[in-house]
Amino acid sequence: MKSACYVPEGRQGWWGGPDTRLRCRADDKVVFFSEADAQKAANRATNRGDPMIFYRGKCGHLHVARKKVRRHG
């Protein structure tokens, strides 16, 4: 079963405007409804220079996160 969702009130987005994106109550991350939508969001962020991937969280929702970079040595 998926965690409940909400739209934050009075929250500012990283772009400077109001953040009205749907968020998961379990982890407070933005929720995507399809793998295609999550992939598009990850691609847009990656193209801006912030490498991202999409994944399904333990909460049951699709999210995007920064790509983990392995550090050697």
Rank of each mutant, 00 (worst) to 15 (best):
D37T: 03
Y6M: 05
D19C: 02
V64N: 15
R25W: 00
L62D: 02
C24S: 03
G10D: 06
W15C: 01
A42V: 07
G16R: 13
W15F: 10
W15V: 05
A41M: 04
R21N: 06
F32A: 06
A26E: 01
R66L: 11
T46Y: 03
R44L: 07
T46P: 13
P18W: 09
D50M: 09
C24Y: 00
T20Q: 08
R66Y: 00
N47I: 01
R25D: 06
T20D: 09
R56A: 02
S34T: 15
P51M: 10
R48W: 03
K58F: 12
R21I: 05
L22V: 14
T46N: 01
T20G: 00
R21K: 08
D37K: 04
V64H: 03
Q12H: 12
V64F: 02
E35R: 13
A26Q: 07
A42L: 06
K40S: 06
K68F: 14
S3W: 01
A26V: 08
K67E: 14
K29A: 11
P18T: 08
K2L: 11
G16W: 12
Q12W: 05
G13N: 13
D50R: 14
P8G: 07
F32Y: 15
M52A: 07
N47D: 07
L62C: 08
W15K: 13
K58I: 12
E35A: 01
C5S: 08
K58S: 14
Y55D: 14
I53S: 01
Q39L: 12
T46L: 10
T20E: 10
L22I: 15
E35G: 04
A41S: 10
R70Y: 11
V7G: 00
N47R: 07
F32T: 02
G13T: 02
W15D: 15
K58P: 02
W14C: 09
G57H: 10
Y6Q: 05
C59T: 09
R44V: 00
A38G: 02
R71E: 11
E35W: 05
A42W: 04
A36W: 04
Y6A: 09
K40A: 14
R66S: 12
Q39M: 04
G10N: 15
A36S: 07
N47V: 01
T20H: 11
P8Q: 09
T20K: 11
F54S: 08
L22T: 03
W14D: 12
R11H: 08
L22A: 08
F54M: 12
K58T: 11
G57L: 10
M52Y: 06
G57V: 13
Q12D: 13
G60I: 15
G60E: 09
G16K: 13
G60Y: 04
Q39T: 00
K40I: 06
H72S: 11
F33P: 00
W14H: 14
G73Q: 06
M52H: 15
A42P: 04
N43M: 10
K67Q: 15
L62M: 03
D37Y: 01
A26C: 12
C5Q: 04
C59I: 12
M1C: 03
I53W: 07
R23W: 11
S34Y: 05
W15G: 00
Q39C: 03
H63D: 00
K29V: 05
A45W: 05
R48S: 14
H63K: 00
L22R: 06
M52R: 11
R70E: 12
Q39P: 04
S34L: 01
K67G: 01
E35Y: 00
D28Y: 03
